[in-house]
Design a protein around this nucleic acid. Sequence first.
DNA 1: TTGAAAGCGCTACCAC
DNA 2: GTGGTAGCGCTTTCAA
Lengths: 359, 359
Amino acid sequence: MARLVDVARKAGVSISTASYVVTGSRSVGEETRRRVLEAVAETGYTPDAVARALRSARSQTVALVLPDLRNPFFTAVIDGVEAEARASGQSLLMVNTGEDPEREVASLRELRAQRVDGFIIGLTRQTPPDLVRNLQNSKKPFVLVDRAGPTGVDQVTVLNDVAAKVMVDHLLHIGHRRIGIVAGVRGISTAEDRLSGYRAGLEAAGIAFDESLVIAGGSRRELARLAVVEALSKPDRPHALIVTNNEMTLGALEAILTLGLSIPSDIAIVSLDDVPWAGVLGSPLTAVAQPSFAMGREAMRLLLRRVESPDAPPRWVRLRAEFVHRQSCGCSPESVSTGTAEAGQPVEGIGATAFGRES
Amino acid sequence: MARLVDVARKAGVSISTASYVVTGSRSVGEETRRRVLEAVAETGYTPDAVARALRSARSQTVALVLPDLRNPFFTAVIDGVEAEARASGQSLLMVNTGEDPEREVASLRELRAQRVDGFIIGLTRQTPPDLVRNLQNSKKPFVLVDRAGPTGVDQVTVLNDVAAKVMVDHLLHIGHRRIGIVAGVRGISTAEDRLSGYRAGLEAAGIAFDESLVIAGGSRRELARLAVVEALSKPDRPHALIVTNNEMTLGALEAILTLGLSIPSDIAIVSLDDVPWAGVLGSPLTAVAQPSFAMGREAMRLLLRRVESPDAPPRWVRLRAEFVHRQSCGCSPESVSTGTAEAGQPVEGIGATAFGRES
DNA sequence: TTGAAAGCGCTACCAC
DNA sequence: GTGGTAGCGCTTTCAA
């Protein structure tokens, strides 16, 4: 690989001048500039990112730390982050924590040694609260994605309470009264928000919240499967189900299949987060699609903003999820608009004084 | 962040000694060693990866360049690469080419400037042949994954011909004779291999290959959907379908649903590559699961081996896909072993003199 | 408008 | 067994 000194030599200028031309950080005489650029082209020079990072304390690299690389939700987030990273000339370092908080802290430490300019972090389900505090103290830019942290931190989340309420409203609207919710593990913002949106929806309709309709799905497929089998085996089972993440949706569907119930006649189901295979079920899955790609993109933008201005006020971006009407909710096929779940991605940018839940 | 000089000062030794203790690259007196280690612990020293990379020309970072971050197949590959990278202390730089060869070459160039130690590359569907040649000339270690390149290159692929033949054999075994194949775009190794496995399976059974049973699915969901709708609308339609990637499987299922056919009575279907939602279909999907995680892991291992010994003979690792028997093939439920597709991952390591297709 | 040179933090050569 | 120091390739201050 050609180095700057090669370019300088070829152009008959000093290294510093060559550098100024390449970086554009100082104006250079027209003729000199031209000669340098020519030399760059001839040698095929590309600045060495490592040397640059060492010297300038900016690596143009950000780290993406996520709990599960197999979950299509996070996959889509990665896609969004990657797209924005490429668009802004950043490199992307990727780490999977596998929902393990220990791996999470270890990764963060190692990544700091890589001199990344910042982190985009999807917290694990069990991240200890002081991890975020430590991060704040460390002065390294970071932004949380999906699962919320304390206020005063840059983050991008979904309006999960709204999303859940939309699902409840729809089910109520088409006549359901006994609506169960397959809830995730307590204590993580997403699960809590979805549950409170569910309660809010019922309350608004004047329906008493019934603890027995809350099915503890544990955020995971297999746990959800077991819990749903149990819940739907009871005599006073719900007639509609809101499932609050895509893993649990798979479990719930398996449970329903096992029990030999049909959708939507025996049991209606609506999923929080859409899935690519929603359309190939006997009764296509009605869902609320998370703006996952947009979340990744916004997270990256927030991070770059923070890198540029470390003292800017913290920003919490909340994105709206999109209702995708299909048939598993029990609406007649005619009333359902066709079209696949091309998640349009309306963006809400809200300042530090956020509304809604403050995790 | 503490630097090596801080450690040295604190331990009362020279910088070089501190370095030798940290890297273990030279033996150091017991007492000195102890003091240095103590200083390391006290200061919380972590070696600066950037400075190290600049000095030693080894960044301990590898790049993963893939055509589609949303495809669950590649997602699983990423998972495997990441796991092995973490296990061996490598960092992972990620790039999405979006099946665009231009982005592919641009990425490769930029990544070289990042001083990555090597590349793991999933070629796009249209990568020009000279890209691989250029890579070989560049002397940077690289390994191909999934789609094969020319011989003489480190790569890990699936025994796709075998996988397709297994599907054909099974369908023949249970009585099918008119077996169609939804084939991917011509010219990429995976699609070609699957098609030739299909032919081989038919030939072995003494059944003439019938061009009209080859459905051009274009490797993509929507193209496959259209092609399958057309193929299944003909009077002489096939009674069983082999679909040769997971995207097209989605399209084929949509087509079947649209046409109002039932699986497996009207049309049997077997998918090449398993999907997490195989079990929630009315007739659970019989599939051949690719060892995607293992592919990622093996690719990383191959790469590290190549980094260690640049002149070792090229190695082509071929992994076996696993038949996952469910019900969409038309077997009676009783004859189907239960259990989800926990892909066991038998590994075949074969030297440079490979068998089977040579790209 | 241009150039010389210090130095980012580390590794590894050479000297003792 | 230990230490001094050159230098990886670049940016940027200081001087001309």
